[in-house]
Computed example of a mutant assay.
Amino acid sequence: MVSMTHVPSGHISPAPVPPVPDPSGEEKENRSAALIVVAFPAFILIGAIVAFMFPATFAPLTNYINLFLTIIMFTMGLTLTVPDFQMVLKRPLPVFIGVVAQFVIMPGLAVLVAKMMGLNPALAVGLLMLGSVPGGTSSNVIAFLCRGDVALSVTMTSVSTMVSPIMTPILMLLLSGTATEVDGAGMAWSLVQTVLLPVVIGLTLRVFLSRWINRIMPVLPWLSILGIGGVVFGAVANNAERLLSVGLIVFAAVIVHNVLGYVLGYYTGRLFRFSEPVNRTMAVEIGTQSAGLASGMAGRFFSPEAALPGAVAAVVHNITGAIYTAIVRNRPVEPVAVPEKVAVG
């Protein structure tokens, strides 16, 4: 996942915030966060176009999917701290509701959208994989920019990531249908290796080597972006010919799935009468998935074509996040404390 110090796509950890925010510092932080939100999809989009035009050059990247996924999740782990998980005890209801809603709404929407749009089995299972993976790489930055509850965003991303080795295979087994064979045990073990272990190792290093890790924190988001690029560019190269025939329907399906996730996520918060910052965070966390992980896992366990929804989502999710930020950022919210940590998971 994309990560960084108080200058945001992984996780973002700022320096201690003074009691009275420095307007110039806040403005600088906003610009840094906005740069990540713009640079990430731009890099993925440009790289995907090049991979589409020169597929032979990028196709070998698929041999290193596990390595790329490990890099993404390890950088996320390096940006986590123990207090990120303490909110589960301090504010259990919004964390619990948010994570449960994410693993209910997005897989359910994936099945619904696939049926409504008549997706073929490969694209349908790829969209389901996208809906069944944990929170996305830029969700915490988007939550920060749209004036959401950043601490909640960090915790939701962390918790959904830690439980994904259990939840993702179960959802794929239950919802993929009889036409698609799912290796649930293999998928669970793969997620343990490429998600859980790298995150735990990264978190452990952060605890014991925090001073050194803090020095390299600004580099971590870019390492994560490169890892996501490796997954996406390989998927595009392997599907260059298929994209000519299914590209538009894949983009449409991913956009509808993503936007509906934002809407239902926001109104889930409203249903439980949470504050406006929490509602915005629910929208972002539920609507934004770990696209690189989805693409890599779908390509590995199903087919190259199944990796396309995740590859497309790596661009779409960040663009819709930027649009959502532009729509809601200047709307009033209740006063909230200055966030102690921003993280992109």
Rank of each mutant, 00 (worst) to 15 (best):
S3M: 15
P8L: 15
P14H: 13
A15E: 15
V17W: 02
V20Y: 13
G25M: 00
E27G: 15
R31T: 01
S32K: 15
A33G: 10
L35F: 13
F43P: 11
F43D: 06
F43R: 10
I44G: 04
A48I: 08
A51I: 05
F52Q: 11
P55D: 09
F58C: 03
Y64D: 05
I72W: 11
M73V: 12
L78H: 10
L80D: 09
L80P: 06
F85E: 07
Q86L: 13
V95G: 04
I97G: 08
I97A: 13
G98R: 00
Q102V: 04
Q102A: 10
V104C: 14
I105L: 09
A110E: 04
V111A: 05
L112I: 14
K115P: 00
M116P: 06
M116R: 09
L119S: 12
N120P: 02
P121R: 07
A122K: 05
A122C: 08
L123C: 01
S132H: 03
S132F: 03
P134N: 13
P134G: 14
P134S: 12
T137V: 12
N140L: 10
V141T: 12
I142C: 06
C146P: 03
R147E: 13
D149C: 03
L152Q: 10
S153E: 12
V154P: 03
V154F: 05
T155S: 11
T155A: 08
T155G: 04
T155Y: 07
S158G: 09
T161S: 15
P165N: 04
T168M: 05
P169Q: 05
L171E: 09
M172Y: 09
L173F: 09
S176G: 01
T178W: 05
A179T: 06
D183M: 12
T194F: 12
V195D: 00
L197P: 02
L197C: 10
P198E: 11
V200G: 00
I201K: 05
G202H: 11
L205N: 01
V207P: 01
V207A: 15
L209G: 04
N214H: 11
V219E: 09
L223K: 10
S224Q: 11
I225Q: 10
L226P: 03
G227D: 05
I228G: 01
G229M: 15
G229A: 15
V231N: 04
G234Y: 00
A235G: 09
A235W: 08
R242C: 07
L243T: 00
L244Q: 15
L244W: 11
V246R: 08
A252K: 07
A253S: 14
I255A: 12
I255L: 12
H257S: 07
N258A: 01
Y262T: 02
V263K: 03
V263D: 08
G265P: 06
G269H: 00
G269E: 04
S275K: 01
S275M: 01
N279D: 13
M282T: 07
G287C: 10
S295C: 09
F301N: 02
A311Q: 05
A314T: 12
T320C: 12
G321R: 05
V328H: 13
R329V: 13
E334S: 05
A337F: 11
V338D: 08
P339D: 05
K341C: 07
